[in-house]
Amino acid sequence: MTIASNSLTEAPAESRVTAGVSQGDVSDFFALLKPRVMFLVVFTALVGMVVVHPDVNPVLAFASLLMIAVGGGASGCLNMWWDADIDAVMTRTRKRPIPAGKIQPGEALAFGLTLSAGSVIVLGLASNWLAAGLLAFTIFFYVVVYSMWLKRSTPQNIVIGGAAGALPPIVAQAAVTGHVGWESVILFAIIFIWTPPHFWALALVKSGDYERAGIPMMPNVAGPDSTRRQILAYTILLAPLGLAPVLYGFGGLAYAIIATIGGLGMLALAAQVYRLREGEPAMRVAQQLFGFSILYLFLLFATLLAEHGLGFFRPVMG
């Protein structure tokens, strides 16, 4: 954090600032919550809720979902606080509020800790303490285990750290049922196995950025060829795993079709990434895999949401 602190004491050049006074706009504080990640957290958590058709008051389900969203945002905020030094040297992240000098690290830390504690306590009061404990564990895992420990020390960072991003469906199911069922565990497994090919495709394209920031991403440590091999291996696992909800009876006909086509699309792109290793075509196909992986996960979860939330469910098994 030393580099970040040194660079952040410099005031923004465009205007005079008063010492000790927050320069952050409301939108800067909102940006600290990583709104796009927060949307994914809410979306996957909502699916984790609806697939079990819980007998729960909608107000309590909404309050639980809101607190899971706030908890997800809080962990993003704490991640930005910790990673401000590396965010400042990466093109993708240098405009974030802390490296841009709009918010002081101490403000982000206080904001993140307050939201973390608040979201866990309110979730416990609104639903149950199992869900609250799981949310606290998710925040801890993302901030301490992933951000503080794994991210800068091992190329397996996003593999293990991916568990934090995969936990929201489990927290959500615990919030509305009081226990953790296999539906949410399967959703967890899908997101968990999806994470490496998704992030490593981006890491292949942005390897220079990660190199500059000193983050040991797989392409920088094991090399692009090994990364391509591992992307293909994880995608071979992911494609059939995407069909697991059908086998377990909560993925219907529409889901089976989407998961099959999407899985084949992921496999085709991963095979292309494995095959094309040089120059612009290699970068382009890696970028395509990154983009398609987002669409793939979104479609899987959106289809489950439509089947269970809107009544489109047509069973395939039994």
């Binding site: 205007s15 005079r16 600032v17 008063t18 010492a19 927050s22 952050g24 409301v26």
Partner: peptide, 18 residues
């Protein structure tokens, strides 16, 4: 108390409102 610039006052008011 620190003397705020008009821009800082505006941002503070917005933060307080939220």
């Amino acid at each position: 108390p620190p003397r705020l610039t008009p821009e800082e006052q505006k941002r503070r008011r917005k933060r307080s409102l939220v």
